[in-house]
Structure formats: structure tokens, C-alpha cells
Write a protein that binds this DNA or RNA. Structure first.
Lengths: 327, 327
DNA sequence: TTCTGTATTGAAACCGCTACCATTTAGAAG
DNA sequence: CTTCTAAATGGTAGCGGTTTCAATACAGAA
């Protein structure tokens, strides 16, 4: 069943049916109703590929994620992106490279022709090359939470440095003076470096230094193992620049009988909803406006797709402290 | 740039290029090489929509999930499905209804025309109606881990009852005799009911009964709150029919100074990899062969899509015990 | 040399929809 | 009752592939 059948049934031309379908507005009201009735009665759904072929786009945005989606933080992130797309009538087609492959050439190729634009998120190798490639293909690209500014590519991120400052100010304000930092600066995680810099700088404004730095991976497993070192270091608060770390640490400290936040306070970063199950770990954290950010990037890329709107190339969002029970 | 350009460049007809593209085999070797060379040199990629329009399919499978994807178990599940699709040259297009809406009519409609078949997974309302609807649309449907058998719909699941039995036998074998059960039988979760039945039955074979039943939601939060009740009940082991529950319980018990498994053993169900971070909670559990299952369902539905292969309508997999440190 | 059969190739129709342009219709103005 | 203009509708050419069917080439057989 196709548009011609509907046209025949409604006693009009294909063109008119198409116009009704597209809400083009130049159809007499009664004709429109006749067509709509036919569509309803025949249970007709237009063929997406044909539309795409004619219109040159799909209403699908490709999302290439360089992370493990079973990590609640990223799972939630994908959800936000999905919802933002849906609100605009788009679908999100996810492809995860799991950060394994060298770059994400495969993923880009897999999605090519099926999507109207690409959102890249998470850590990946060869990022510049990949972005370049997508731009060469004349496809819209947007970078979500990636530190890389490139003319022609939309970019949405938080101000990590400011986030770090915020954390430091907060802990200082609460009276903590022997403050530790857990992050992944040495392994070169940009976001960690920036948060660290902001944090250190803000502390130094108060004449303080980071009492002890703990280099961990960005997960709960390694953070967990640091419990003893943290205790021995004599800090009264630790800022973990990822909730997953904070979470692992809190868990380990609690198990060792440390009272949180009385003995040691813990502050996270990300606000991973899934982890904050009452009453176990009501983690204090630096929260990112993920929903707004997702909505922003999706709208920007759709603007680019549909109207080639010149968008603000780079959007930076602020974080805020969410005080719960670990500080 | 399109197939005609390539044809012109290579000095052959569109048809020949198309044949090369499709590996149809009726092209002379040297012609084929010529065409391949042209394709390579021009960096040509065929237009997916056009292919789809002509061939009648997309190489995309729609996955409608009625759960929260930021739950690590489901996040991982989606990953397995994605990988299985990719191995077969397909893409998975996820749409999550988050179990909120009445059924998943919206999701089915959103994906219509973009996908070659549907995989439904997770709890949802109005399941039979939705399955019926998809069958009426003449689209392949497959049900993943859903208890509903319908002629015309592929179904892949584990044997939950047997899983329950396995758990009981295992705990009994380890010498536990005062065994508790935490599940969602009263709220009517099919999978929980079946696991519970199998568990209870296997215990009764040994002249035992479930010492205490705890009705919880299928997450860590509520399970956490049961710690006191569990302790007071005097059990020496608890079988939680979901890892998330087991996890919440273990956490709470440890925090209260209970030694696991010496004082109380805990056995989970699902084998959620993400939660098993060393050395915090190395949860003993009933593991499902998720990877195999995902691969099975994807192959079945692709068979249906491509060759209308009469597939085994219903596949049931077995679980196995994974012993770690909580038993 | 001519004929027959098979291996290659190409022309054109088609997939279902949109977009451009032409045509018809209706209503207002003269 | 024309004439003119704007609104409504229809015809048809793409979009970029695949597929059917016909045409050609070439080999071996008669």
C-alpha cells in the first residue's frame, strides 16, 4: 500500500496526499479532511526510505559513544539524548565503540546514510581525524562533553574548571581544610585535569594545597582500593572527580567503619542518579545539567540539519553543588 | 555522487556497478576490479535509503525496551543485543518506553518504516495487543526475556523455574538450611513467580520450606531497607531473585557489621557484571547466558527478515551458578 | 563457416515519495 | 459577462539504487 493507493481511494492526486502528509498548508480544508480520512481508514503509513530518498533526510541522529553503556552515568546520558531527540521528532541511533577500536571509523561508516548527523560523545582516540572525516562527508557533527573545539562542529560541554572551583569553594566553606583529591590527571583525562586545576587554584586562593592526590581509574573498583591510603593520609575530606569513584570510596570507607561525613567527607562529580539510592549512599556531588545539555546539543544539530542554521559553535554549561549526606 | 557517476568513471553501466556492490557474482573478474577501483578512488558509498527503497529492507532492527537503561543490567543487555546485531551486519535502533506509557504503541510507530523487525524486551503493558499489532503489520517480532508465547513471534528466554531450582540446590548443597527468599512475587512479576516456584519446590524436595519471604521491588533501594528484617528473621542465607536486590542487601548487611557469608550468605540472580567490582561485592549469583541469548534472538529475527526462515518459535536457555564470595 | 548455448553487459522499469511547473478553479474586480 | 489574480490541484521528473529482460560477445560444436 502506497501513496497512490491512498490518492485513488480519496479521489485526489498523489501530490495532494503528499501535501497533506507534509502539512504544506496549500490544500483546501475539505480536501485535507477527505485525505486524512482515507489515510486513517486505510491505516496508511508513509514509507520512510522513500521520504528520505526524496527529502534527503531521515529524522535519525547517530550517536557514537566511546564508553561502556552499562555504566549508569553513560546509560543515563544516552537516555537524555534519546528523550531530547524524541521531543523533536527524531530518533537516536546509538553505536558504541566501547573505546576499544582505534577511533570510531567503523561506527561512522555503519551509520552513514542512515542518519542525518552525528553526535560524538565520550573519550575516543583520533578524535580530530574523525571529526574532520564527518565534516568532509558534509554531515553535521556535534561533540557532547568532549574537549575539542573545531570550526564547523557544534560542541556542548560543562565548564570543568569552574566545576572544580565550585567543589573546592564548597568544601572550604564547610570548614574542611585537609582536603584530598581523587582523579585521573596522570592518565591524561582532560576533564580530570581541568577539574583538578580549577580545584587546586580555588584552594590556593585560600592559602591551601591539596593535601593528598590519589590517581585512580574512572570507576568504583580502583577507588575502592584506595580506602586505606585515604584513611592513612589524614584528610578530612576527599573530592572525587567522578561519582563512580566517590561511590567506590564511600563504600570502602563505610565498610571499614569510618563515619561519613564525620570522620571523612566525600564529594563526587556527575550526579549519577542511579547510585543515589536511599539510604545507602546519598552522595554529595557536583551536578551537571545533563538534561539541558542534551536538549541543547540535539536542538543545535537539528537546526543545522533542517535549516542549516548557523549555531553557536560552542556551548558551555555551569554545574552546581548538590549537598546530600556525605559532606 | 551516485552509482551513475561511478559507472561513468569506470566505463560500465549502473547495472554492473550495482552487481559488483551486491556481490552478485555474474561479473567478469577484470570488470569487477575496474569497478572496485573506481569505487575506491571516488570514495563512493551507496545511498542506504535508495537501497532500502529498492530492496525493501534497512538492516536495522528496532529494539523496544520497557525498562530504565541506566540500570546496569539492562544497559548490558542492550549492549549484547547491539553487538549481536553488528556481528550480523545489522544496526540496533533502541527506543525505550521506560515502562511508563500504556503499552508501547508510540515506540512501535516511531520505528515503523525504519526497521526490518522488532525485538521487544522488558516488562510492558498490553503486550499481547502490541505483538498482535506488529504481526498484523507483517513485520517480524521477537520477544526477549518475556514470558509470552504467541504463534508467529520468536521468543528467547531463560528457564526461570529451573534457575530457581538451581539456586535452591546450590544453597542446600552448601549446607544452608534456614533460607530466606527476596523477590517480587506479590507484585506479580512473572519471572519472580517462576523463580520462586522452582526454588520452593526444590527446597521441599529436601523437606525444607522457605524460612522467610521478603517482598521487594526489583532494585537495590528497597532491598537495602530489608536488612534489619533479614537479620531478625534468623536466616543463614538469602536468595534474592535479582542481583540489584542482592546488591542492596549485601551493602546494608555489611554496613551493619554482618559478615558475609559467615553470618548470612547472599545469592543473586542475573550476574550483572557492573556490580561485581572487586573486592567490594563479589556476588555469588545465578548467571544467564546473555550473550548467547542475544545472539540467538538476533539470528532468529534476521533469518526471518532475510529468508523468511521458519525459526524455532521459542528458545529456552539454562542458567548456571557462579560462585563468588557471598556464599 | 554457421549455429547454439552460455557468460557478460546494458537499457529501462520500478520502489514510494517529494518538488517543480502547468493547469484548472474560484472569486474579485472591471 | 469578461478579465485578472490567487488558490487549489494534478502531471511528471527526479532521488539512487535493484531487477527484469533483452542484447551482445564469445566459445565450442556441427
Amino acid at each position: 500500500m502506497n501513496i497512490s493507493d491512498v490518492a485513488k481511494y480519496a479521489g485526489v492526486s498523489k501530490t495532494t496526499v503528499s501535501r497533506v502528509l507534509m502539512n504544506s498548508g496549500l490544500v483546501k480544508v475539505e480536501t485535507r479532511d477527505k485525505v486524512l480520512k482515507a489515510i486513517r481508514e486505510m491505516n496508511y503509513v508513509p514509507n520512510t526510505s522513500a521520504q528520505m530518498l526524496a527529502k534527503k533526510h531521515n529524522k535519525i541522529i547517530g550517536v557514537i559513544c566511546g564508553y561502556d553503556v552499562s555504566d549508569p552515568f553513560f546509560g543515563a546520558m544516552n537516555n537524555y539524548i534519546f528523550d531530547a531527540c524524541r521531543k523533536c521528532g527524531y530518533l537516536a541511533l546509538f553505536a558504541s565503540s566501547n573505546g576499544e577500536s582505534d577511533g570510531c571509523d567503523d561506527e561512522i561508516a555503519m551509520l552513514y546514510g542512515k542518519v542525518d548527523g552525528y553526535i560524538l560523545c565520550g573519550q575516543k582516540n583520533n578524535l580530530p581525524k574523525n571529526v574532520e572525516k564527518i565534516i568532509d562527508m558534509k554531515m553535521p557533527v556535534a561533540l557532547f562533553k568532549i574537549k575539542y573545539v573545531k570550526k564547523g562542529a557544534i560542541s556542548v560541554d560543562i565548564d570543568n574548571r569552574k566545576g572544580g572551583e565550585l567543589a573546592a569553594e564548597y568544601l572550604y566553606g564547610k570548614g574542611y581544610r585537609k582536603i584530598g583529591y581523587m582523579g585521573s590527571v596522570q592518565s591524561g583525562f582532560q576533564e580530570s585535569c581541568e577539574r583538578h586545576d580549577g580545584f587546586a587554584e580555588a584552594l590556593s586562593q585560600h592559602g591551601l594545597k591539596i593535601k593528598m592526590y590519589f590517581e585512580a581509574k574512572r570507576d568504583n573498583r580502583t577507588a575502592y582500593k584506595f580506602a586505606d591510603k585515604v584513611i592513612k593520609s589524614g584528610v578530612d575530606a576527599v573530592f572525587c572527580d567522578t561519582d563512580m569513584m566517590a561511590y567506590g570510596l564511600v563504600y570502602a570507607l563505610q565498610k571499614k567503619g569510618i563515619s561519613i561525613p564525620k570522620d571523612i567527607a566525600v564529594l563526587g562529580f556527575d550526579d549519577v542518579h542511579f547510585l543515589n539510592f536511599e539510604p545507602a549512599v546519598l552522595l554529595s556531588t557536583v551536578s551537571q545539567p545533563m538534561q539541558k545539555m542534551a536538549s541543547c546539543i540535539v536542538k543545535a544539530i537539528i537546526g543545522k540539519i533542517e535549516d542549516d542554521i548557523p549555531y553557536g559553535e560552542s556551548q558551555v554549561f555551569d554545574c552546581r553543588i548538590v549537598e546530600r549526606e556525605t559532606t
